[in-house]
Design a protein around this nucleic acid. Structure first.
Length: 418
DNA sequence: TCTGGGGTCCTAGGACCC
DNA sequence: TCTGGGGTCCTAGGACCC
């Protein structure tokens, strides 16, 4: 058996933690630049406001229903998430953090436990220690856990937990769930199944294996078997990432290359810190640049380049140099740019670094980065930086409605003192 | 006027090999 | 005029997730 612990309306619940007066009131949290709705309270869901709609399209509803609006505050959400994960970790040595608000744990060896009691205990512990509401779904496969969790969320009388531990419960749950709500089934798959007249998740499990594999690939077949109760997706320690990205839409249109270079340098610095934190090096970086696709009346441009180097590095200096080469190559005069970003790729562990004969990177970068990270960790982000990052506010964003950094202000305070 | 960010996995096809 | 068979590895792009 596995358990899936999933925070209810995560970002909204984080905001409510420090604004208890907003419980039972309609609340939304927005994406960067206050663009789209990325989290909704139950009250907002009930109004029919969909995930991902742009704020400007629902301005009238915000006013009419007195919806409380927050800009995203990822520092806060990340910190709350970490605390929740620490509690979950205590229930099983076998854990996979799936996203900022979800984690699976493996329950091998829990045969003699009352699983529903265990689920309640996890839920109550997180509520008691942190004040965040979660639902817990238990089942023999991860995909069925997702189903169980959905049921736990949907029916309040279950008190936030549900266990699928019999064939009857499995079939009942799958007949209840619409196929488009199955984890891993999206519009592409639905389209390919159109003529099969499949309505429920249960209908999906009746498909022929051969047909499923042929049209929905191994992914679809695994999904089907998972729903049938065969464990196909193992717990996977996702602690080491395979790529690290930093991309941003700009608060304003940018036309100058110098401005783009500065922004790209900051994105790269940000990503390289994450890279060093997980003790990886990379040997390629993708850089992209694009205009605003919503402004169809303006000339459009999108381009990307992948720069690969014959050695692996995590040096901000080297990576920023490559990123700037990339943006210089991509830049075109006469366009108004709205978005840019970088992705670090092809990781190797730092400790068994391959020695390269013609490495162009000075060996001094390694201790230098260590010192830089240590200073920035203790005194505050960006206290020491690479010259090309400039000295402007680092990630300029429209954030009209941001809450306080309630839990992570420590470094800011020290910075003020300095 | 205003439209997010960060990931994973799979596959087809190209470029090689003998 | 006729032109084989069987592999591996890599990569870009697609599809999916939260």
């Amino acid at each position: 058996m596995y358990a899936l612990i999933d925070v209810n309306n995560c970002f909204v619940s984080c905001e409510r933690l420090f604004r208890p007066d907003l419980r039972n009131k309609p609340v939304v949290v927005l994406s960067n630049n206050d663009g789209n709705v990325v989290a909704r309270s139950n009250e907002v869901k009930a109004l029919g406001i969909k995930m991902g709609v742009p704020l400007f399209q629902i301005k009238h509803l915000v006013k009419k229903h007195n919806i409380h609006v927050f800009s995203s505050n990822y520092e806060l959400y990340g910190d709350i998430s970490e605390r929740i994960m620490t509690i979950i970790e205590q229930f099983s040595p076998n854990m996979q953090i799936y996203s900022i608000d979800e984690a699976f744990i493996g329950l091998q060896g829990f045969d003699y436990f009352n699983l529903n009691e265990l689920a309640q205990k996890i839920k109550n512990e997180i509520w008691k220690q942190i004040g965040m509401p979660v639902c817990v779904g238990l089942a023999p496969t991860k995909t069925l856990c997702k189903v169980a969790n959905r049921i736990a969320k949907k029916y309040p009388q279950l008190n936030g937990t549900y266990v699928i531990d019999s064939e009857e419960k499995r079939i009942k749950a799958l007949k209840w769930l619409r196929v488009e709500d199955v984890w891993g089934i999206s519009s592409g798959f639905i389209k390919r199944m159109e003529f099969k007249n499949i309505k429920s998740a249960y209908d999906f499990t009746l498909l022929d294996d051969f047909w499923t594999k042929k049209h929905l690939s191994i992914v679809g077949l695994k999904l089907k078997q998972e729903l049938q109760g065969t464990d196909c997706i193992k717990i996977d320690d996702m602690a080491i990432k395979k790529s690290i990205a930093c991309t941003r839409s700009f608060d304003v249109m940018v036309t100058e290359l110098e401005e783009l270079k500065k922004r790209i340098a900051n994105y790269t610095a940000h990503a390289s810190i994450k890279l060093r934190k997980q003790k990886s090096d990379c040997n390629s970086i993708l850089i992209f640049l694009q205009t605003n696709p919503f402004r169809k009346e303006l000339p459009q441009y999108y381009n990307k380049i992948i720069i690969t180097f014959p050695y692996a590095t995590s040096s901000s200096i080297t990576l920023i140099k490559k990123a700037i080469q990339g943006i210089e190559y991509l830049y075109k005069d006469g366009y108004q740019f709205k978005k840019a970003g970088i992705v670090l790729m092809n990781f190797t562990p730092s400790e068994n670094k391959q020695i390269v004969l013609f490495n162009e990177e000075p060996i001094k970068h390694i201790p230098l980065m260590k010192v830089m990270d240590r200073i920035n960790n203790t005194i505050g982000n960006n206290t020491v930086r690479i010259g090309s990052q400039g000295f402007d506010k680092v990630f300029k964003m429209k954030q009209e409605f941001r809450s306080n950094r309630y839990t992570t202000r420590f470094s800011e305070l020290i910075q003020l003192k300095v």
